[in-house]
Design a binder for these strands. Sequence first.
DNA 1: AACGCACTACGTACGTTGTACGTAACTACG
DNA 2: CGTAGTTACGTACAACGTACGTAGTGCGTT
Lengths: 237, 237
Amino acid sequence: MAGRAAEPEVIWARPERTGRGPRPAYTRADIAAAAVRIADAEGLDAVTMRRVAAELGCGTMSLYNYVPRKEDLYELMVDAVAGEHELWEPDGDWRAAMVRVAHQSRALMHRHPWLPRLMSPVYGFSPSSLRYLEHCLACLDPLPAPYGTKLELIAMLNGIVTTYVTNELATAERTRSLPWSQERENAIRIAYLGGRIATGEYPRMAAAFAEDAGPIDLEAVFERAIGRMLDGFEPRP
Amino acid sequence: MAGRAAEPEVIWARPERTGRGPRPAYTRADIAAAAVRIADAEGLDAVTMRRVAAELGCGTMSLYNYVPRKEDLYELMVDAVAGEHELWEPDGDWRAAMVRVAHQSRALMHRHPWLPRLMSPVYGFSPSSLRYLEHCLACLDPLPAPYGTKLELIAMLNGIVTTYVTNELATAERTRSLPWSQERENAIRIAYLGGRIATGEYPRMAAAFAEDAGPIDLEAVFERAIGRMLDGFEPRP
DNA sequence: AACGCACTACGTACGTTGTACGTAACTACG
DNA sequence: CGTAGTTACGTACAACGTACGTAGTGCGTT
């Protein structure tokens, strides 16, 4: 009897290797790397059990020896790329550290555009995620606040980063599997929006679009959002 | 030739009724209401084309006369519940208005726990969404800032609300289709986390969990987050 | 040394999904 | 009045996650 799948289970709690039986042909890292490779190259929807198995060069059902459910494969992927976070020695400036963390996370999500979609329910229990969280807390040591507040700060930071990068990537990851281009879809949506605004039903939106602000600097928008958020945690004098 | 599906299309741009042909048996509102009813009662994963058709009492493929792709069905759903937003006459206090909007959105998402999952790529082009956006801008009239900033504020507000409610609902909507209870899954995850922390590898997380803060008041956490965010947009003296 | 059991590997098969396609009935416009 | 465009819907297909059964393998125990 191989499959124990009818129980809730945290994949990190099951040992990667127990003594008995033949040597597994792959490690979790191998599997995660294969899945990440596929997702990076072809989008998250291309990550199917069959496709990952093919990438590894094994039968589809062999994957289930390593990963009881597909959801757990996603956890492996998140953990793998969370490991790309650089964890440095804190230097006493918690604000600068949080800004740095935010930029790192943003870069990570741009490198792996499927990541935001897997982060919606907080998956933060994988080894790499725990290390990342502990590192954030270490960076926040200089902030005079209870841990509850610090956890709120980290949650808010992650939430904002995810939200903003999702918007930045917009339909990019979503349209990966569609037969038409992102530009084409965007053009059609913009055209429709323009038509709606032209009806005069939405005067303020019309004004907003008329307000010529030049090309939008997404990085600057992101930076401002993070700064505003951190303002709310600055110790009151 | 019935289906024109191989083109990018905004469902709101296609008229609900053209002159020719038999009278459609249902309206878009009927279809959206049916889908929302199913999602509310059985979770988003229960919303399949077959199930919605059955709920309406028609054949599966008849749905495609109204909705070219399943994604458009989602748009109908989002629009339907976005219409539940109460749009009042602004009274000059933009901060209070934004807090009120945030609480309304939060309540909406608690009433329809599947909503956050459909909001990740900003679907904000439906009629109700446009009305909502215009109303937010109207509330922000008293704020001395360019429209660009106001749009940033609204985006940030929506993002934070979505993030926080997603965390509040946590696995609630996700586990809807799983054969075990949410409590059981949570208990197992917490137990695992406790084990990891007990290793001493994560001293600050251990301290965070040891810090006895009593039961967490999620509404208060939410309120604080919104407040901190709005602080960042307060005009500087 | 040898036995047995726990494990790996994987082919087959089932149920479910979105939806392309073809056909028949119907109605407004020329 | 025809005819073109529309609605209705049954059939069918490809792709998905994964349950299950079987065969082979090698560690732990005797």
